[in-house]
Structure formats: C-alpha cells, structure tokens
Computed example of a mutant assay.
Amino acid sequence: MLIGMTYDLKDDYLAAGYPLEAVAEFDSLITIDAIDDSLRLLGYETIRIGNIKALVAFLAQGNRCDLVFNIAEGLHGLCREAQIPALLDAYEIPYVFSDSHILAVTLHKGMTKAVVREQGVPTADYFVIHDEEEIERVDLPFPLFLKPVGGGTGMGISANSIVRDKIALSYVAKLLLAEFRQPVLVETYLDGREFTVGITGTREGARAIGVMEIVVDPSCDLGVYSYKTKQEYLDFAKYHLVGGEVALECEKVALSAWNALGCRDGGRIDVKMDSLGRVNFLEVNPLAGLNPVDSDLPILCRKAGISYHELITRIMDSALLRMGKARSRCIS
C-alpha cells in the first residue's frame, strides 16, 4: 500500500516571511520523519507530498496513492484544515483522521460548542463576536475568557484572555478581531483543573488512551495555558496522568464530544472543571500535533506507556477499519 504524506512544513513558511505565531501549528522535519519511520516499519511504502499546493501539483500530474496520512493544518480561512481532505474527497482518495466536513466545523470553536451542547455534552456558556458592534451584546457573567474562534496551539491566548469587566472585554475583543481577522469566542471562565484526553478510534471503536492534567506555573501568563506557555512548556507547564473518578468523568465527557462531532481515528479533547469540580468540554483537536517530543498527545502516550509507534499503529488501524482493509502489522 502506498501512503502519501501531506503536511505544512514550518521552515518553508518561516523562510517565506510568515511570523512565528502564524505558523505555530505547522510541523517540523522531526515530526515528518517520525511518522514516516513508523509507517515504513509497518510495511507501507510512503511518499512525501507536502502542503496543499504540492498536492494539487501531485494530482494534476496524474499521480495517485492508496491512502493519505494528512496532518496539514492549512493557512488561510476557517476551512483551512478541511482544504486537503476536501480535495482528496474530490479525487476519491481515502485519508487518515476526520473528514473535510468535520474539520471545517471543529476549527470554529463556537460551532463546535453548539454541536456538543445540542448533544448534551456539558460546556461553558458562550457568545461569538463577529465584529465590534457585537461586543455590547455579550450578556454573560464575569469573569470571561476570550480567544480567536479558529486558533490553535494557544494562538491569541495570553493572560489578557481573562477579562473581568466590560472595559477589558471591549479592549481584548477589539484587539483579537484586528489581529486575527476572525470572530472571537467569549466563554464563561472556568477556574478549575484542566485536562487533555487522548483518543484513538472511530464511533463505537473510539477509546480514551489516557487523561493528562495540565498544570501551568502562575508566573507565566497568570497560569493560563497560552501560546507562550505552550512554546516554553519545559519551563512553565507540568503534565500528570490522572486516574480514578476524575479520569472517568473526563473520559466520559471527551468520548461523548468526540462521537457527537463525528471525529475519526485519533486526536485530543480538552476539558476543564468549573468552580464546583464539574467537567466541561473545552475544545477538540481532530488533527492533534504528532511531534514525538513536544506534542501533547505523544507526551500523554509516553506517560501512559504507549510508544509513538503504537500510537501511529492505532491511528492507522482505525483508518483501515473504516476502509475495510486489514489491520496494520506492528513489528516494533
């Protein structure tokens, strides 16, 4: 089986002059090499294609592959994560991870919350600001938390994201609208413990592989899991596996959200407790980072005793099961 690999290489965009935060979600060669090595260890032939423009050229030249391992985040618009999957849909080429429709919905944090809330998954009250005129329409109790609706890797999140009055709300909302040129999500601030839940599988085959608590040093952005914190996590963040009733409740909320959204194969769900200790859905990452050293999902797996190769194997098994193919052969 020939597996194509699609991705956005961070160095290419930095060389083209893009600022570091704009390409924070993009991947390094370390990630590409690690995925490629695991796929080849499983016995697959691989071909590195690259970003969407490279994929367009690849397909236009008449090239095809049996399956695409897609981790491309895209660059422009709120459907950026869905662009490569949509193109592959048009060519009837199957791919790993969630489909184009799901990736379009889940990149918009407001739409994501609407879907999970409709399905009975607990999540904080929210409002989406589309322009400055809508700031006055926010009618939620302070404190509130603000972030771009389509950001990832902590983009647009800092100590200023927590606002405690209307003046701060207006200031931060206008700042985010201007800087990121997309709507702003306003949520009731949850001041409890924060967790991320790793998941592999699809629908009834989805399983939580671990629950990891994220503890941020309050000296960094007032303890917010921000862009700065994520970039400097070795200095400011600690990660701990949790068990017992807390883990079970986190898994319950995470799996309910995963299946309500229709996510596939592998990813992460972030959850957070409110002041009463109730677990709430925070957001989903259906294209979770796969850097073998720095990304949350591989970190969680290491702490749970799951190797990087086993993680890739489980993701591939889910994709192949959907395709009606034989499971991967792990020869680690």
Results as ranks from 00 to 15, higher is better:
G4S: 03
M5A: 02
Y7F: 15
D8W: 02
D8E: 04
L9H: 14
D11T: 15
A15M: 13
A16W: 11
F26E: 01
D27R: 02
L29S: 14
I32A: 06
L39P: 01
Y44W: 06
T46Y: 01
G50Q: 03
I52A: 12
L55I: 10
V56H: 13
F58A: 05
L59A: 03
Q61H: 06
G62K: 09
G62P: 08
G62V: 14
L67Y: 05
N70W: 06
E73G: 13
L75H: 09
L75E: 04
H76C: 03
G77V: 11
G77M: 07
I84S: 08
P85K: 10
A86N: 01
L87S: 03
A90Q: 07
Y95G: 12
S98H: 04
H101E: 08
H101V: 14
T106K: 07
T112A: 09
T112R: 05
G120A: 05
V121Y: 06
A124C: 13
Y126F: 15
V128I: 15
I129K: 10
E133D: 15
I135T: 10
P143G: 11
L146R: 05
K147E: 09
V149I: 15
G151M: 05
G152H: 00
T153H: 01
G156W: 06
G156H: 06
S158T: 14
D165H: 08
A168V: 00
S170F: 00
K174A: 06
V186L: 09
Y189L: 04
L190Y: 10
D191K: 15
G192T: 09
E194P: 10
I199P: 06
I199W: 08
G205A: 11
A206S: 13
R207W: 00
I209G: 06
I209K: 13
G210R: 12
E213N: 01
E213D: 05
I214N: 11
V215M: 10
P218R: 15
S219Y: 00
G223M: 13
V224I: 15
S226V: 07
K228E: 12
T229R: 02
D235F: 01
D235G: 00
F236R: 09
A237Q: 02
A237I: 05
L241I: 14
G243H: 10
E245S: 15
V246A: 08
V246T: 15
A247Q: 14
E251F: 01
E251M: 07
K252F: 00
L255G: 11
A257H: 03
N259P: 07
A260T: 09
A260C: 12
L261H: 08
C263Q: 03
G266Q: 07
G266R: 10
I269N: 09
D270T: 12
V271C: 12
S275T: 11
L276G: 00
N285G: 05
L287E: 04
L290N: 08
N291T: 05
V293T: 12
L300P: 08
A304W: 02
I306D: 01
L311Y: 07
I315L: 07
D317S: 07
S318A: 14
S318E: 03
L320S: 02
L321S: 11
M323Y: 02
G324L: 09
R327Q: 14
S328K: 03
S328N: 15
C330D: 09
